[in-house]
Measured scan of single mutants.
Amino acid sequence: SEIVVAMYDFQATEAHDLRLERGQEYIILEKNDLHWWRARDKYGSEGYIPSNYVTGKK
């Protein structure tokens, strides 16, 4: 599975969105859409994140 790191904070506005915290790692579950990826955080929460807010883990 692909691990990404959040470059920016993202506040979830929709129920299906996942909040991003800058510097935290997330697991990508689905990339069915170019701009919104389904991800899981370290607490096990899942939701959609803006793909341009994250970068591949170095």
Rank of each mutant, 00 (worst) to 15 (best):
S1P: 15
S1G: 14
S1I: 15
S1W: 15
S1Y: 15
S1Q: 14
E2K: 07
I3P: 04
I3K: 07
I3E: 04
I3C: 09
I3G: 03
I3Q: 05
I3T: 09
V4Y: 11
V4R: 04
V4F: 09
V4W: 10
V4Q: 03
V5Y: 10
V5K: 05
A6V: 03
A6E: 00
A6R: 01
A6S: 05
A6I: 03
A6Y: 03
M7V: 10
Y8S: 07
Y8P: 00
Y8I: 08
Y8C: 15
D9R: 03
D9L: 04
D9V: 04
D9W: 05
F10H: 07
Q11A: 13
Q11C: 14
Q11N: 13
A12K: 09
A12I: 07
A12G: 15
A12N: 08
T13H: 11
T13S: 11
T13M: 12
T13L: 12
E14H: 15
E14P: 04
E14G: 15
E14T: 14
E14M: 12
E14Y: 13
E14V: 09
A15G: 10
A15Y: 09
A15Q: 11
H16I: 08
D17P: 08
D17V: 15
L18I: 06
L18H: 01
L18C: 06
L18Y: 01
L18M: 06
L18N: 01
R19K: 12
R19V: 09
R19D: 13
R19A: 13
L20Y: 01
L20R: 00
E21P: 01
R22G: 05
R22P: 05
R22M: 11
R22A: 13
R22W: 07
G23R: 03
Q24E: 14
Q24H: 10
Q24D: 07
Q24M: 10
E25F: 12
E25W: 11
Y26G: 00
Y26H: 01
I27A: 07
I27G: 02
I27H: 08
I28Y: 03
I28S: 01
L29H: 00
L29I: 12
L29R: 01
L29K: 03
E30N: 10
E30I: 06
E30V: 07
K31I: 05
N32T: 14
N32W: 09
N32V: 13
D33P: 03
D33E: 08
D33G: 11
H35E: 09
H35S: 09
W36E: 03
W36A: 04
W36N: 06
W36I: 07
W36H: 05
W36M: 07
W36S: 05
W36T: 07
W37D: 00
W37Q: 00
W37T: 00
W37L: 03
R38N: 03
R38E: 01
R38C: 12
R38Y: 15
R38D: 00
A39F: 04
A39H: 02
R40Y: 03
R40E: 02
D41M: 02
D41V: 02
K42G: 06
K42D: 04
Y43R: 07
Y43G: 07
Y43D: 10
Y43A: 09
G44V: 01
G44K: 03
G44W: 03
S45F: 12
S45Y: 12
E46F: 04
E46W: 04
E46P: 01
E46H: 04
G47V: 03
Y48P: 00
Y48A: 04
Y48I: 08
Y48V: 07
I49D: 01
I49E: 00
I49L: 06
I49Y: 01
I49S: 01
I49C: 04
I49K: 01
P50R: 06
P50N: 07
S51V: 09
S51D: 02
S51G: 06
N52K: 12
N52Q: 13
N52W: 14
Y53G: 06
Y53W: 07
Y53K: 07
Y53M: 12
V54F: 04
V54C: 04
V54M: 04
V54D: 01
T55W: 07
T55Q: 11
T55A: 10
G56K: 13
K58L: 14
K58P: 13
K58W: 13
K58I: 14
